[in-house]
Simulated scan of single mutants.
Amino acid sequence: MTSTNPHAQSVGLPVRQGIRGQSPYGAPQLDVPYLLNTNENPYAPPPEVVASIVHEVTQAATGLNRYPDRDFLDLRTDLADFLAHESNVTLAAENIWAANGSNEVMSHILQAFGGPGRTALGFTPTYAMYSEYARNTLTQWAEVQRNDDFTLDLEHATATIEELQPAVIFLTSPNNPTGTALTLAEIKTIADAALRVSIDGAPALVIVDEAYAEFRRAGTPSALELLATYPNVAVTRTMSKAFALAGGRLGYLAASREFVDALRVVRLPYHLSSVTQAVARAALAHSNVLLGKVDQIRQERDELVRWLREQSYQNKSLIVSDSDANFVFFGKFDDRHALWSALLSHGVLVRESGPEGWLRVTVGTPEEMTAFKSALVKELSQ
């Protein structure tokens, strides 16, 4: 359709400063046989879980002329029950918040506790979206570089917290893209430093992002254990990964009731649809079944780490980060994009993430891992 407005082609849009010229975040979505770039669970929900979801969604559909339960206490109770079973930490429904993926939970956090004149702090390399949450809420973003082995320099971290006085501090355990987990002692050190910050008379908040927590190795703790003694700590989780529910879009948070109540102020009305709540509750009712593949993914991950460390590039062994997640970070390559493209030519899609020279591969099915290994060996031998 041709516009009759003579200025239609010449007038721009008043895009605000800060996002002008920016591109939307997102991993490549390509139609290839082996999708190993977005840390999805490679195993689809089994038929009995699908049937349960269909039943619950059908029930919800009969009431779609009405708004959903705005405070979704039944879902929050189910999430609290799951955490009690998974991490042996008892929480009330009022200690839980949920949204459309942990991305929306993070946005709620910075809407409530960030904003102009406030700073959010992260430890890079880490999840790239944190800086975008900050940008979108007009929160200043600051970074502390991790050590070469991707651990935290705690002395430098605490000094930076004292200097910058951030309102919100993001810790990621297991970290994305490196897969490395934090100890409770490390988290406590950051939480203690945050308590010495004064933001309008209140301490800084420490957000421990545990999106991949269900994949952690035996003995690796959850920061949920700190909630009772550190009221400035919150823990975020997701059902996208271990629950094989990436398409369901349900993320959640555990924190003090006061913290959750602040998020309730900034959330949009009825932000969780009746369908989303029904899907999540049905999945939680089958958590043992859905998490049944977690041990297998852990075993595949540990085998992949071992195998990668046996490979070489330019006569040097590959460097492989220890992983408590469902992905593995490996390098270093002179031209990682060239290797990424070469793997793609074999139908294997991995992720260019983190510092130059590194790639991240999601742990897939045995068939997918065989395809990845075969393609990588062929390309490294070129």
Rank of each mutant, 00 (worst) to 15 (best):
E225S: 14
L226N: 00
L227D: 06
A228I: 13
A228W: 05
T229G: 04
Y230L: 04
Y230H: 13
A234M: 14
T236W: 03
S240P: 10
K241I: 04
K241S: 06
A242S: 06
F243N: 02
F243E: 08
A246W: 00
A246K: 05
G248V: 01
R249F: 02
L253A: 07
A255S: 13
A255C: 08
A255R: 02
S256E: 15
R257V: 15
E258A: 14
R264V: 12
V265Y: 03
R267Y: 10
H271C: 09
L272M: 03
S273L: 02
S274T: 11
V275H: 03
A278G: 11
V279K: 00
A282P: 04
A283F: 01
A285Q: 11
A285I: 09
N288R: 15
V289D: 11
G292N: 14
K293T: 14
K293P: 03
K293G: 07
V294N: 11
D295E: 15
I297D: 02
R298F: 00
R301Y: 00
V305R: 10
R309N: 12
R309S: 12
N315G: 15
I319C: 12
S321P: 07
D322Q: 12
D322F: 12
N326R: 13
F327Q: 13
F327G: 09
V328A: 06
F330Q: 07
F330V: 07
K332V: 06
F333L: 09
F333M: 12
A338R: 03
L339T: 07
H346Y: 07
H346E: 08
